[in-house]
Design a protein around this nucleic acid. Sequence first.
DNA 1: TTAGAAGATCTAACGTCGTTAGAAACGAGG
DNA 2: CCTCGTTTCTAACGACGTTAGATCTTCTAA
Lengths: 199, 199
Amino acid sequence: MPSSTRRARERARTRDRIVEVALHVLETEGAAALTIRRIAAEVEYTAPVVYQHFANKDALVLELIAHGYDLMLAQARRIADEEPDVDRRVLRVAREYVRFAGEHPSLYQAMNDSAVDADARRRAAQPTVDLLLELLTTWSDAHGVVLADHADACEIVWGTLYGIASLGHFDTIGGQRAQRLAEQALGAILLGWRGQGGG
Amino acid sequence: MPSSTRRARERARTRDRIVEVALHVLETEGAAALTIRRIAAEVEYTAPVVYQHFANKDALVLELIAHGYDLMLAQARRIADEEPDVDRRVLRVAREYVRFAGEHPSLYQAMNDSAVDADARRRAAQPTVDLLLELLTTWSDAHGVVLADHADACEIVWGTLYGIASLGHFDTIGGQRAQRLAEQALGAILLGWRGQGGG
DNA sequence: TTAGAAGATCTAACGTCGTTAGAAACGAGG
DNA sequence: CCTCGTTTCTAACGACGTTAGATCTTCTAA
């Protein structure tokens, strides 16, 4: 068994630890604490080793973002799978989105930080957006609602959730209220789409 | 005439020029280019002068944010005043919000940058939020719609606009489409609120 | 008219950041 | 044992926000 495979294994292990530690620092101390030197110290290396695994800080942050969407997507799927009612399914997934934003504020903010390349962010979000599109399609089918454009409808809901979830970070609003608001907003939108021919 | 008043005038003038130049750099070259040294160079001073007028960079950025909301509020009022129809008034103001976000992308992103103190940002936004609340109140009165909670409704619309406007910064969506989406979203929400007793 | 106070501005530096070059240490193979 | 490739470290670069202290200007008052 060539020792090069063990080398590769160790390399991968270190890479994983970097991501793990970076996520931990981000979530517990916020974006300002997430520095290369801090991450290196946390995995008991010096700063330059990080660059052996990531081209630059942005690449590392993008990995955290991807991880964030993986988490969010998993939770959303869990909710979607356990709720049989089509309407409540959408509402509960919406609420879950906002709950996630409240439970992982710094990670969520990183996932939507305009300093990070927009296209890369969107790519990371795409699978979750796709799930939403799926939910909306089955919803409109179930009610015989003909949406003018499914993609438009999906973007509207995605944007709405994002905006309302962001409100939760204000002290005057808070995560709980944001969850309620998201549910109300989606309730109103879906009702509106049923009310007419979804335009 | 004491010369101290001229001193004060010159001081104020320099302060204004700093804000002016900072805004220009932000809008034309983005947040990454907005550094204290850059601003100082632009007004033909050295960096420390800036600190004679602003406690720190955040304070300066907050002033830019406040200016941004002033602009946005003025435009929104203009639209609101010239549109007699209650429904179209809300929709057009919504579209204007998103248009503003598309016309001043970097400024708009600064206005919602989570790195800036959330409460201060909210305070800067408050007058614009108040206008929105006003619009929604006259809208619900005009249609005899009893909203469960006007403040909730306002936050929902505010959050929705913010989220959909942010979508416009993705290449795959763009400002034009975001404007349409915002109008559609608000159309659906308002229709939903009319459809039932606004809960 | 000039001494000194008050204010404006500059130079120089500190500590931190992301990032890179090059030296040193380490491991495996001949 | 010695060499080679890899891993890791030290040291540094340039840029950032920010501050201390010196210098230079301008006004006031004797």
